[in-house]
């Protein structure tokens, strides 16, 4: 892997983290002293993706604008890595008229036709639409691919297995990416999943499967590159599982009292670890790190400012957009 790619992976991870930290800040800013989930500039459930940056950065580095991505209820890292417009995405999260969905969707329902990005708040149910996008690409003779992201909890849902079977049967250009962050809200993987490696489930559908350990962004990049190349070449689907990290709660306000791994979580943060690695390898310098952070911060704060300045939807138009 060349240094430019490694620096780019780092840059993307920092951008995602910077974004999630800013949303975290603004989400809680007006929910004090008592936390009220429906209050404030950013109301509702908020599932932040800190710790899972290596998955989005490593996979989406191989994608082009015309490739499709479906993300689950925790979508920001994937959206950013896919290249969704940061300002309109943020405006949507703030429920504004200039948001991706004019404030009708919210943070779990981001749709960006320009980058073929969408997400679904229902666990596992983003997989079938990705199949359909892959189906349309294949029929059009394009070499575009579709990538469906899902948490490890989704791998036990019926729709996951229906989708793998159909994708394999019809040889669709789709990549399934399971983000194993160890937790389905409060249920640990050991209490939900009969096997140790979800990628082994690929065997049941006659497709390749691979698991990446240790939230290693370079391993994600390499493994995903092979899967995307296979799909582009018409060789069909691949199932990947990435062992990643949920750095924060399932959603903001989650006290995480159930969590027995909290002590070790900070030490598993993938960004300082990768930063140290790239410093040691002389890919980054203290100066270049500072520059990456400054640029990320400037982009994110500009997006948040855009959102805050965007108009609030008119209540008398609440019933619009049901039909085309």
């Amino acid at each position: 892997m060349d240094d430019k790619t490694r620096a780019e992976l780092y840059r993307m991870m920092v951008l995602i983290r910077t974004y999630e930290e800013a949303i975290l800040r603004d989400y809680h800013a007006d929910k004090k002293p008592a936390f009220d989930i429906g209050a404030g500039l950013v109301p509702g459930e908020m599932h932040l993706s800190a710790g899972q940056e290596p998955v989005a950065a490593g996979v989406c580095a191989h994608l082009r604008q015309h490739d499709a991505v479906t993300a689950p209820h925790r979508p920001h890292h994937v959206a950013i890595a896919k290249g969704v417009d940061l300002e309109r995405m943020t405006a949507e999260i703030f429920g504004r008229e200039s948001g991706l969905g004019r404030g009708r969707g919210g943070h779990m329902h981001l749709f960006d036709p320009a980058t073929h990005f969408s997400c679904s708040g229902i666990v596992g149910e983003g997989l079938p639409p990705a199949l359909g996008q892959a189906f349309a690409f294949k029929r059009a003779g394009a070499d575009a691919v579709a990538v469906a992201f899902a948490g490890e909890g989704a791998a036990n849902a019926g729709v996951f297995h229906e989708s793998l079977n159909l994708a394999a049967l019809w040889n669709l250009p789709v990549i399934f990416v399971v983000e194993d962050n160890d937790w389905a809200i409060s249920v640990p993987r050991r209490a939900s999943t009969a096997i140790g490696n979800n990628a082994d489930r690929a065997f049941a559908y006659g497709i390749p499967g691979a698991r990446v350990e240790d939230n290693d962004v370079e391993a994600v990049y390499t493994t995903a590159g092979e899967a995307v190349a296979r799909a582009r070449a018409g060789e069909g689907p691949t199932l990947l599982e990435i062992h990643t990290l949920r750095l924060w709660g399932h959603f903001e306000g989650d006290p995480q009292a159930y969590r027995d791994d909290l002590d070790e979580v900070p030490g598993r943060d993938p960004i300082p670890r990768y930063e140290q690695h790239l410093l040691a390898e002389q890919v980054l310098t203290e100066d270049s790190i500072r520059q990456v952070r400054q640029e990320a911060s400037a982009r994110v704060e500009k997006a948040i400012e855009f959102a805050k300045q965007s108009p609030i939807p008119a209540p008398e138009r609440a019933a619009e957009y049901v039909f085309a």
Binding site: A68, T70, H116, S118, E125, L127, P128, P129, A130, L131, G132, Q133, A134, F135, A136, F137, R139, A146, G158, V159, E162, S163, N165, L166, L169
Partner: peptide, 20 residues
């Protein structure tokens, strides 16, 4: 299709989103 209604109905949705 296989007897996989969620998969093939969702496939229809994804294909429609892409213009079919």
């Amino acid at each position: 299709t296989p007897i996989s209604e969620s998969a093939f109905i969702g496939l229809g949705t994804g294909a429609a989103v892409e213009g079919m």
